[in-house]
Amino acid sequence: MRLTVWRFLDGNRAHEKQTAALLCGLRACGCAVDSHDIPAAALSTLLRHGLDQQLRSLPQPDFIVGAGHRSHWSVLFARRYFGGRSVVVMRPSLPLHWFDFAVIPEHDRPPPLENVILSQGALTEPLPRGRRRPGKGLILLGGPSKHFSWDTAAVRGSLQRLLAEPLEWTVSDSRRTPEETLRGLSVESGEICHWRDCPPGWLAEQLAESEQIWVTGDSVSMIFEALQSEARVGVIPLPSRRPANKVRAAVQRLVDQERLTDRVEDVAIPVGAPREPLAQEVLCARALLRRSDWLAE
């Protein structure tokens, strides 16, 4: 089947990656997707001038997709004037019932409405298959967050245990990583790649090639990106700021499902066959098609 999708972009790369992942999921379901990327307009602009008149030259949309608050009004206006079904990715700041469908991570605990499609984590784009290299390890460090404290001594202890394993390690930090975390750290077999020095596409390449990937527990989006790989995925534990922690609960569910491990010592266990990617973008796309009567049961 062929679908026309209008994708409103708010300029936030993280948001745009999630809607791109949904389009990948639609294609994986066998759809030929004609996608049209459109800059989102502010509500004040829409009220004064309406939608861009050039939209009239585009094919009528089957789905109108957006992620992030700045895209929501453009999605709703386009749905009103051009038809199609509106799809918002992530929990919107506007009422859920204003949209035909909402794809929302289950750890955000949305209400059980019939237009809500639950995803396990944020949608992420698929990675190339068949590129896993034996003996290659990747460590991705986050930093303090509203959900987790950062224990530098404990993190360094986990790093030393991981790096003691004779793999070809790549260690990368992020904007949030405290400087003292990597100060004086020796990576005898591998390298440290600071986030400022990582070129475009570097992370996807590293994820696709690694046999083991370890991520600090605060970086939930990175954990779900890692689960798109064929690697063993491990979490470096961090102390929670409060007993009720939705991010920790989401990670714990993945541990309980044996999709990842939170035991650093598991780095020494031989890695088995390539793991099947999480592929939530495919499950959510299939649910969207089924609920829209595009897909037979």
Results as ranks from 00 to 15, higher is better:
L182S: 01
R175S: 10
P134Q: 05
P126R: 01
G130A: 09
L46T: 02
S57N: 10
C31S: 05
S186G: 02
P111W: 04
S174Q: 12
S186W: 07
G11Y: 01
R85I: 06
V171Q: 02
E106F: 03
F224L: 08
K136H: 11
P92I: 11
W214M: 07
L140F: 03
L182T: 01
L141C: 05
R175H: 11
G66Y: 00
L260H: 06
Q120N: 15
R232I: 00
R232H: 11
W150D: 07
D256V: 14
E114D: 14
A249E: 15
T261K: 08
E125H: 01
S71P: 07
R241Q: 13
C284W: 04
A285Q: 06
D10G: 08
D37G: 00
E205D: 15
K146H: 13
D151Q: 08
L207I: 09
E205G: 14
D197E: 15
L227A: 03
L94I: 13
N12Q: 14
W195P: 14
W169Y: 07
L167C: 12
S119D: 13
V65H: 01
G137I: 09
S74V: 04
G68R: 00
R7T: 07
T177E: 07
S35V: 14
S145Y: 05
L227N: 01
I139F: 02
D10R: 00
L163F: 06
L295Q: 04
G184T: 05
P144Y: 04
M222S: 11
G157L: 07
W73A: 15
P111N: 10
S35K: 08
N12D: 15
P59N: 01
R183V: 02
G83Y: 07
H147L: 10
G11C: 06
S219K: 12
S145P: 11
W195G: 10
G135T: 05
S145N: 10
D34V: 10
R263G: 07
E276T: 10
L55Y: 01
A21G: 03
L283P: 10
G83L: 10
S93Y: 09
L138T: 08
L140R: 03
D256R: 12
R156K: 10
V88P: 06
T19V: 06
A41S: 08
N12T: 15
V235I: 15
P134W: 00
A154D: 09
I139A: 04
Y81E: 13
A279Q: 15
L238C: 04
E258T: 12
S240N: 11
A122Y: 02
E281C: 07
W98L: 15
F101E: 14
I223H: 02
K17H: 08
R242S: 13
S74Y: 00
L254T: 03
C198M: 12
T4I: 14
C193T: 12
L254V: 11
C24T: 06
F8L: 07
